[in-house]
Design a protein around this nucleic acid. Sequence first.
DNA 1: CTTGGCACTCGGGAACACAGAGTGCCAGGG
DNA 2: CCCTGGCACTCTGTGTTCCCGAGTGCCAAG
Lengths: 337, 337
Amino acid sequence: MLDDRKLAVLRAIVEDYVSTNEPVGSKALADRHNLGVSPATIRNDMAALEDGGYIHQPHTSAGRVPTDKGYRLFVDRLSQVKPLSGAERRAIETFLAGTLDLDEIVTRTVRLLAQLTRHVAVVQYPSLTRSTVRHVEIVPLAETRVMLVLITNTGRVEQRVVDLPEVIADDRVSHLRAVLNAALDGCGLAKVPETVAALPERLSPEDRPVAATILSVILETLVERHEEKIVFAGAANLAAADFTIGLRDVLEALEEQVVLMRLLGETDDLSELTVRIGSENPYTGLRGTSIVAAGYGSGDKELARLGVLGPTRMDYPVTMGAVRAVARYVGQILAGS
Amino acid sequence: MLDDRKLAVLRAIVEDYVSTNEPVGSKALADRHNLGVSPATIRNDMAALEDGGYIHQPHTSAGRVPTDKGYRLFVDRLSQVKPLSGAERRAIETFLAGTLDLDEIVTRTVRLLAQLTRHVAVVQYPSLTRSTVRHVEIVPLAETRVMLVLITNTGRVEQRVVDLPEVIADDRVSHLRAVLNAALDGCGLAKVPETVAALPERLSPEDRPVAATILSVILETLVERHEEKIVFAGAANLAAADFTIGLRDVLEALEEQVVLMRLLGETDDLSELTVRIGSENPYTGLRGTSIVAAGYGSGDKELARLGVLGPTRMDYPVTMGAVRAVARYVGQILAGS
DNA sequence: CTTGGCACTCGGGAACACAGAGTGCCAGGG
DNA sequence: CCCTGGCACTCTGTGTTCCCGAGTGCCAAG
């Protein structure tokens, strides 16, 4: 049903529409692309593409605009991820160069990605799943209150204030700290739950209530809260795109952590590029936007995801190239630190 | 030159314009406010106000709109900060209730403020100036690299990765940690520089190069970097206001830490409400927006600032009330933890 | 000093016409 | 069988004109 030429026409429509932001007609296509056929022929092909639901005309006598389905076909079969230019690669390297802590890496990454793609960038903090515990610190703040600081080998620092069920003396805090560090130092996060479960036995009975409180917070912090944090940047790019409609919805979605999480989404094929186009994505306020996301990680396994959000009529090959490249570089940085 | 009635007219114009968002004419004023005079009289007053530069008419035959100068007069002399309703107070309390670490307090505060005012909220992290050092932790990451974690009594945790000039053994790290904690524990941040300066004498010569590196990072982190962090929320509220023009500029400004800093601004009279109206504010992209800011702190001294940014035609009394209330509550929370 | 009256101005919406882009269809040609 | 040129048709967007109404400034009278 869709022969090669029809596909070429679709590709041309997408490319022209992305660059001009105006419905594209048969004559313009014949002029700008070397399709080797006349406008009339192109019109026939366009009619077929419209029957298939790949393109759509806003009004009877206007050019055609790709539909979400059309973009999907384009992304899946008609385009190739475009590698970054040398200048862009160098920009990434210098931008992320230097010794950085995790916060800084994430902050810089999200800005870099926004700047590179001219869309809104979204970066999820690396999951702790593959990390190991580097250090546990307990700092007394008041009689029944301590601050718990957890440091992982990826440089992430988690802090929590903990209210204790009873007064605890400083030397008992020290003891607890020593026991915790002995047990958890170097422990993979995946193994934390079982390690923690075995701990109370090694403590004196009087320490157990306090220890139980602290341990439950450790578990909660490391295992449950570990994927919540997400940042974004480049909201100004939304205003630049002629996004008059729905801009409010988009901004609202961006401020909802939960929505952001679902946007980046979980994929089966890890570390591969995911593209969600318009209505494909799970949040109603975000029709009209597409998400290009990728997993990144320091080793073979994906730690977290990052991506960008922009209008459906974005330049997919370029955007995908930028997202993939940034994901890889960040992975390298994380692996190296 | 401006008698009481003229001021009343100006007040009425501001109030009407803020609520309707349309230029307000003499007849509407006479109808909606009990000024006790006829439209013709009001017209005369309006002419005087326009001569004074307090109001302005978009075109010859439209109503009047307050100028920045008019808003300024309104804020300074014609309005009173409006206290929050009971429901709003309760909302603040429940929103900020519970034991929270600093990150959480700031995050919740900025969201609360955005929700309460329906503007963009901006919160600066508490300055460390008045804090004391609670704990210093040094964690080896690699042969010539350690992570430095600084914990203050306000619950703030600062982390930095430090590259060392030479390899350092674990026991020397432990020793350094002990010395640092002995010297700095409980030390007010203001005194950190002199304390740090005296330290090298108490170390063996071989430790000094490494110690010097670490100490310089401590200084930099605590003293220089301590006020950089700022967060904002509620950008979606910008889209709601009919901000078609300049929205991009505003969003860009919001993502510039430096601009945000200057927006909140330093005031002479601490902890008092600051209002910057339209062209009064230091950033060109933000004409058309006003900033209402206040200092907040846990004691008598201001730790940092927070505020909101919205269109010049915002409801100043209500907004000022909300900002002041939130600033006070956050101060209480910080004092209590 | 205030008030009612009055002529004047100007922006914005409705009605209208028109040019241009783009289409679908059809008959002829390779 | 597919491609092509021609042609009539259908729209949208734009520019023009026109008119209404809100609002003003000024003036003379109370």
